Simulated assay, not measured.
Amino acid sequence: MYKIMDAAPGKRASREAKLLRTALEMFHHTTGLQMVIEAEEVTDNAGHRADALVHLETLGIDRRFVVRVKSQLNQATLGMTVHHLERFPQKGLIVTDYVNPKMAEQLRAMDMPLLDVAGNAYLNEPPVYVYIKGNNPIEKPHRKRPTRAFQPTGLKVLFALLSYPNLETLPYRDIAKAADVALGTVGWVITDLKELGYLVDMGKRGRRLINKEKLIERWVTTYPELLRPKLVLGRYKAVDSDW
């Protein structure tokens, strides 16, 4: 059983809903099959949340899929996304803007259904079998300049905020000390988080982080490329492998 949740506010929720609808329309256009959105943002009895619940009914089959919408899916987020969906009792479905042929093959090997807005898809629900790969994006995604919150020093602040509960409620000076960054860094990170829908400022009631799970996913995606290389002092090998 699933409980229907109110869609999360903010631009991020709107982008995910638009991406899902576009991918479903493209799936219908390329295959003639139609999936219908039954709910946006649902949670099961164990408290696991999904971005949507979709329904496919055709050729004698009647299936529902829990959906994870993941913009710009990559190797850093693929495993986490699959793991998230595997926690649900019903089959999962990954929806993204574009899946390259290599990743499409990985998902097929995992038997993980997928759709993207370019028309690539994988679905194995006998007697229905769909496997489309190699379609290029209609428009190549424009790589936006990362916000300052996801630059190296901003990632340090995010790590501190995610590691210490309620740190966001403290004065900027305390946050800067916990993250070991300059005081000025905290201000623009907080501003970016509010604009991106990860933090709400309730005035006298203080600040509160929201959408933490998705914020963690984004941090995990960005960390290996931008912050980790700056933290590595060197690589070493022990003479004795049992050392």
Rank of each mutant, 00 (worst) to 15 (best):
L78M: 15
G92Y: 01
G206S: 10
Q34V: 12
M5V: 08
R15E: 14
G32I: 11
A23L: 10
E57F: 02
A238T: 15
A109V: 05
K237M: 09
D116W: 04
V42E: 00
V42M: 01
G47V: 06
K91M: 09
R218G: 00
D111F: 10
F150S: 06
L93F: 02
R228M: 10
L183M: 05
T191I: 04
R15Y: 11
F88Y: 00
D97P: 01
E57T: 10
G92N: 02
G32T: 09
E57Y: 05
D242Y: 11
I216L: 12
E217Y: 03
A149P: 11
L56V: 03
D111E: 15
N136C: 05
I94T: 06
R21L: 13
A52K: 01
G32Y: 09
L20Q: 08
L167M: 05
T81L: 05
S14R: 14
N166P: 01
G92V: 02
M112Q: 14
H83F: 04
I132T: 04
E38Y: 09
V54I: 09
Q90H: 06
R235F: 04
N136V: 12
P141V: 08
V36A: 08
V200F: 12
R68Q: 14
D174G: 00
R205T: 10
L20R: 09
M80N: 03
A50F: 11
G32E: 09
K133Y: 06
G206E: 11
V69F: 09
R68C: 07
A109W: 02
L155H: 12
K91W: 00
T191P: 01
A176K: 01
V82S: 03
L59S: 14
G154V: 08
V42C: 01
R235Q: 12
E217S: 12
D174S: 08
R21H: 13
K204V: 14
T147W: 07
Q72W: 03
L33I: 02
F88L: 04
Y172I: 09
A118S: 15
K140Q: 10
V232H: 03
V36K: 15
G154K: 07
A104T: 10
K177H: 11
G206M: 11
A8K: 13
V117R: 07
V186S: 05
T43R: 14
P127G: 06
V67Q: 05
V220E: 13
